[in-house]
């Protein structure tokens, strides 16, 4: 359905945020769209979304980001919102292994419900909680490579990499769209997946730096 908002944009991209409950999806969303972080945020019931427009290549890209409840038994409802998504952030909590383990299931579900050309980024959130890290950056990187997704570690609380993660996903979607490759189903599309991150500028190192919490 067309989104007839007053504001002007060239592209509207629907992006979904998925992952186990409590990994910080809602705070990633609020950090990106409103630059807010709340320690008091409540669990998400059902689905919510927020929007933000960014500029990519002289074009205004409006991101409509859907935030879903993380608990398993709500998936019947929340998966309805995958429809039409061209990007996804699959979020886990770097302090909880189980949320990382479940990423595989989230990916499967995502791929079951969306077009294969969807741009997916694996996001390890709560990177600020360094002393409680349970998921190695290396393991996650390897996993992302295996799964052919982008990867980034973020901290919604410290605002680390949040902007970067979203804009990277939007950028990649834009690349796909502008190459009119969105409909392509072949895995051999020129979509540069598989690298830890491939922003094309100086972001590879930046990401790596942010990703490891030794600093």
């Amino acid at each position: 359905m067309a989104y007839k908002a007053d504001d002007d944009y060239d592209y509207l991209f629907k992006v979904v945020l998925i992952g186990d409950s409590g990994v910080g999806k809602s705070n990633l969303l609020s950090r990106f769209t409103r630059n807010e972080f709340s320690l008091e945020s409540k669990s998400t019931i059902g689905v919510e979304f927020a929007t933000r427009s960014i500029r990519v290549d002289e074009k205004v890209v409006k991101a409509q980001i859907w935030d879903t409840a993380g608990q398993e038994r709500y998936r019947a409802i929340t998966s309805a919102y995958y429809r039409g998504a061209v990007g996804a952030l699959v979020v886990y909590d770097i302090t909880r292994n189980v949320t990382f383990d479940n990423v595989e299931r989230w990916l499967k579900e995502l791929r079951d419900h969306t077009d294969s050309s969807i741009v997916i980024m694996l996001v390890g959130n709560k990177a600020d909680v360094r002393h409680l890290r349970a998921v190695d950056t290396e393991a996650a990187t390897a996993f992302a490579e295996r799964e052919n997704t982008y990867f980034m570690e973020t901290s919604a609380l410290e605002s680390t990499n949040v902007e970067k993660a979203f804009t990277e996903v939007l950028n990649q979607i834009y690349q796909v769209v502008s190459r009119k490759a969105l409909e392509a189903t072949s895995h051999s599309t020129s979509l540069p997946k598989g690298q830890t991150i491939n922003v094309g500028k100086d972001d590879v190192s930046a990401v790596k730096k942010a990703g490891c919490c030794s600093s």
Partner: peptide, 10 residues
């Protein structure tokens, strides 16, 4: 904690 949700312990 206020920052850490259900974090694991060292």
């Amino acid at each position: 904690g206020s920052k850490v949700m259900d974090a694991r312990t060292l």
